[in-house]
């Protein structure tokens, strides 16, 4: 990949929309919202990206922004009534749902969904390999030591769940 400092907007979208979608999915456990989170993150970048002085930080900036957007929506959702699903068909379309490709992807993603949320967030970023553990700590705004312990416990939980699902599937 080209130096992030030289990427134009289209290239930034190309480089990061997939990993952002995956991170959004790990947070929301929902394909629609994962797509929306990715879209909103790039919208915010288009609006405010000029204020990012160090363009080499664009990757961690995007992940941090997506995470904050997820938290903002969750706080807002907690104040709202439960929605009726038919409203989605009426008020407008979005990116269509997508079918996962491999059995393994199913198992790993399903296993990740069952991990406690506080561990799931750093785990998703860890396995996606886009960020160093220092950047993971910055994105989630927790100390590095906390990330280490959450990764350790999260990995143990994930492996147990993954093995159980593999056994159930076999």
């Amino acid at each position: 990949m080209k130096d992030p400092e030289t990427l134009n907007f289209d290239e930034i979208v190309t480089a990061f929309y997939q990993p952002l979608y995956r991170f959004g999915y790990s947070l929301a456990k929902n394909e629609h919202e994962a797509g929306d989170l990715a879209q909103q993150t790039f919208f915010i970048y288009a609006e405010k990206g000029d204020s990012l002085r160090d363009k080499s930080k664009v990757k961690s900036w995007l992940f941090t922004t997506l995470y904050r957007e997820f938290l903002r929506r969750r706080r807002k959702d907690s104040r709202m009534d439960h929605y009726e699903p038919e409203m989605l068909e009426v008020v407008g379309g979005s990116v269509e749902p997508h079918i996962r490709r491999t059995m393994d992807a199913n198992l790993a993603v399903e296993a990740l969904e069952e991990v406690d949320e506080v561990y799931r967030q750093p785990l998703a970023l860890f396995y996606m390999k886009d960020l160093s553990y220092k950047e993971i700590a910055e994105t989630l705004e927790v100390p590095i030591g906390t990330i280490m312990s959450r990764l350790s416990r999260g990995k143990a939980q994930l492996r147990d769940i993954f093995k159980r699902k593999e056994t159930e599937t076999a």
Partner: peptide
């Protein structure tokens, strides 16, 4: 696990959208 999670792909029209 990493390979499996990274094989999760965004919907085909997300980038265009």
């Amino acid at each position: 696990i990493s390979d499996s999670i990274n094989s999760l792909e965004a919907p085909a029209d997300l980038k265009a959208s």
